[in-house]
């Protein structure tokens, strides 16, 4: 059994529960791949450097990050640098032989570069060029399998390697989905809410299981904002070969095991 766990990158949103849960899963013979993001930490470091993260709005009203060259550099500092090192050390201290990888290592996560985006600025539609982002089309599962077979636990983060040979930003939830698909694994996306809520004001209204088109309709209708991206990632994982996909709260004692127990 292979489990791909998406966790937050910053320790604050990634309590030790997740790391010790990874340790007990690995101890029990489960192969685990950890995937993490951490864009709020990137914004913190940009701010500490006296720079500002740039968010742009598309003509359809979606807000996203514009990643210029300097922001991309800070991304590499914070994600494969600071946060990945911190998580690998945390897992090593739990007895897990973790190995950190970004999407550029061994061409782990590759795909098309998207350097231009349509944005809405002061009511004008414009094309902004120079964005460092891309869409994952290929996962080098051989590298992951080599590491898993030799007893290691890969800890994967963005950037990915775009087809023009440049490291670019990509959504970490979707990176986790791509990895889960490539490994035919179980995807568990940990988040700071208990799951997708049918009623966003009622924490007890978690949609437990989706196993038919109507319940999937209910799910996608209920998922708002950042959660809709997580549902999209879960959907992509299943379309690409993942066995199961679960969105669950990180704030329990054994968040991954509990999510897997409920799924299976």
């Amino acid at each position: 059994m292979t489990v791909v766990v998406k966790i937050g990158g910053a320790r604050a949103v990634d309590p030790d529960g997740a790391l010790s849960d990874v340790a007990s899963l690995v101890e029990g013979g489960t192969q685990v791949v950890v995937v993490h993001g951490g864009s709020t930490a990137v914004d913190d470091t940009l701010e500490a450097l006296g720079e500002s993260p740039e968010y742009v709005e598309t003509p359809s009203g979606v807000v996203g990050r514009f990643t210029d060259e300097r922001t991309m550099e800070v991304f590499s500092m914070v994600l494969p640098g600071q946060l990945n090192t911190d998580l690998v050390v945390g897992l090593q201290n739990e007895g897990v032989d973790a190995v950190g990888l970004s999407g550029v290592d061994g061409g782990l996560l590759t795909g098309a570069r998207k350097s231009a985006v349509r944005v809405l600025e002061d009511g004008k539609k414009k094309i902004r060029r120079g964005d460092h982002s891309g869409r994952i089309e290929n996962v080098n599962s051989d590298l992951l399998e080599t590491l898993l077979e030799t007893g290691h636990t890969p800890v994967v983060t963005v950037p990915m390697l775009a087809d023009d040979g440049v490291a670019v930003n990509t959504d970490a939830d979707r990176a986790a989905a791509a990895v889960a698909g490539a490994l035919s694994g179980d995807l568990v996306v940990l988040t700071d809410v208990p799951g997708v809520l049918a009623d966003v004001d009622d924490e007890s209204s978690v949609i437990d299981r989706v196993d038919s088109p109507p319940t999937y309709e209910t799910l996608t209708a209920a998922a708002e904002g950042f959660m809709s991206r997580k549902v999209m990632a879960a959907t992509e994982a299943l379309e690409n070969g993942a066995t199961t996909a679960t969105i669950a709260s990180a704030n329990t004692e054994r968040p991954i095991s509990e999510a897997l127990d409920e799924t299976n």
Binding site: V42, F75, K114, R118, S133, V158, N169
Partner: peptide, 23 residues
């Protein structure tokens, strides 16, 4: 049409673009 240059104004067909936001 995308404005490629402004002096003088040069236009080209505006590319269709998918949105792919990063982390």
């Amino acid at each position: 049409l995308e404005v490629i240059e402004t002096d003088p104004v040069t236009l080209d067909t505006a590319p269709e673009l998918e949105e792919d936001w990063g982390e």
